[in-house]
Computed example of a mutant assay.
Amino acid sequence: MRILYLLFPLFLLLLQGAAGSTLAPRNEKECLRQKGFCAILKCNFPYIIAGKCSRFSFCCKK
């Protein structure tokens, strides 16, 4: 019974991490569909990183 007290917070932590993982664009098509653009290594000032287009390019959005 003691292990349930340790297992329950771990389960909630895993659910919280998995909840937002599907919202970010994971490829170039999804990035363009969400009105963003792909940039290599970083986004310029008014834009922030919203996801990934490929290994070294990121999806930038305002």
Score class of each variant (00 low, 15 high):
L7E: 05
L13G: 02
I48Q: 06
C59R: 04
C59K: 07
Q16P: 00
L41S: 13
K29S: 09
L7I: 09
I3G: 06
F58Y: 12
L12E: 00
K29I: 00
L6K: 04
C53I: 09
R2G: 15
E30S: 09
F37G: 07
G17K: 05
L6D: 01
G51A: 02
S57G: 04
S54F: 02
N27V: 08
R33E: 14
T22R: 03
M1G: 13
C31T: 01
Q16L: 14
G51K: 07
L23F: 01
K52S: 14
L12C: 11
I3K: 09
Q34M: 09
R26E: 05
E28Y: 14
P46S: 04
K42R: 04
G20E: 03
F8K: 08
S21T: 10
Y47I: 01
R2H: 11
G17Y: 02
L13A: 09
Y5R: 13
L13N: 03
A50F: 02
L7D: 10
N44F: 08
R26K: 12
I49R: 09
K35F: 13
I40F: 13
I40E: 10
G20V: 07
K42C: 07
E28F: 12
C38E: 07
F11G: 13
G20A: 00
R55Y: 12
R26S: 04
C60F: 10
C31A: 00
N44H: 05
P25Q: 03
K29N: 04
F58H: 11
L6I: 13
